[in-house]
């Protein structure tokens, strides 16, 4: 006779997973920080000792030079104006892309008529890199600003559209059937099944969309902007101010990371645990 009996499957799922020991969490953070610090030290060593082994590091600014430049710029109102300008552009374009991308994704997934009308257009426009639309944007929009937002919008629109479409199509039919046999109509199915059911997929589209938006807003600013982080970085390059170029790059990196984190956080908040 055995005395120990395996817990029924229903029980094991409800018990919370054991908490990780705090020491291990701290060690993992230490490793993450050490990784960044090591990269900085390597950069410093390569540039200070002027390593030239086919790739040349003798002309690249050192981290200390870049930090000095960053410090100067942190005291310059123009730096913040540029950041604000880029953020406004990207958030406007991204918000528009989120609204239209999710709506179009659901429409195309749920209606064969809308799918037949819109899908061919989408398939032809989708492969065009958004940045290739700069000349068209300049023609179409009265102001530069609107052109840049348009390009950011187009860049984020397609990943959001495609992810939403896939997520909606992958929903189990039984959820919709159940709601319909409770008397739910089209709108009820949309609000109670399609939207919440597709949310995880929608958020993965939003994450990708945010990344692509940054690529495009910076590129568009480099080509046609007169403000913004991208414009400022390109401008620094044209006057051979390399420390400022690197500060621009780091700024873009940090902003991209922050906005992606925001989308992630929002996703976890809204989608929650399932």
């Amino acid at each position: 006779m055995t005395t120990a009996v395996a817990a029924p499957p229903g029980r094991t799922r409800t018990t919370p997973s054991p908490k990780r020991p705090p020491g291990r969490q701290a060690r993992r953070w230490l490793i993450r920080i050490a990784s960044l610090v090591t990269a900085l030290l390597l950069w410093e060593w390569l540039t200070v000792t002027d390593v030239t082994a086919w790739i040349r590091f003798d002309r690249l600014p050192t981290p200390v030079e870049v930090a000095g430049q960053l410090w100067t710029l942190l005291g310059d109102p123009l730096y913040y104006l540029d950041i604000a300008q880029s953020l406004v552009r990207i958030l406007t374009g991204f918000a528009l892309a989120a609204v239209f991308g999710i709506a179009a994704g659901i429409a195309v997934a749920r209606s064969w008529l809308l799918s037949d009308i819109l899908q061919p257009l989408f398939e032809v426009v989708r492969p065009i890199p958004a940045i290739a639309l700069v000349p068209v944007a300049i023609l179409l929009f009265p102001r530069n600003e609107q052109g840049i937002v348009f390009i950011t919008f187009t860049a984020a629109f397609f990943p959001i559209l495609v992810s939403t479409r896939h997520a909606v199509r992958a929903l189990p039919a039984v959820w919709e059937d159940a709601v319909r046999t409770m008397g739910g109509g089209r709108w009820r199915v949309l609000i109670s099944v399609v939207l919440p059911g597709a949310l995880p997929g929608v958020f993965s589209g939003l994450s990708v969309g945010m990344g692509v938006s940054w690529i495009c807003v910076i590129s568009a600013e480099m080509i046609s902007g007169d403000f913004g982080v991208g414009y400022r970085t390109w401008h620094a390059y044209t006057i051979v101010d390399y420390p400022a170029v690197l500060v621009g790059m780091i700024t873009i990196g940090v902003l991209g990371w922050l906005t992606a984190g925001l989308v992630e956080l929002l996703g976890r908040r809204i989608v929650g645990e399932r």
């Binding site: 039984v174 959820w175 046999t181 109670s192």
Partner: peptide
């Protein structure tokens, strides 16, 4: 008027 009970997984998981 005519509700249905399905074989499995018809509950909304969220």
């Amino acid at each position: 008027d005519r509700a249905m009970v399905f074989q499995d997984d018809a509950l909304l998981p969220w």
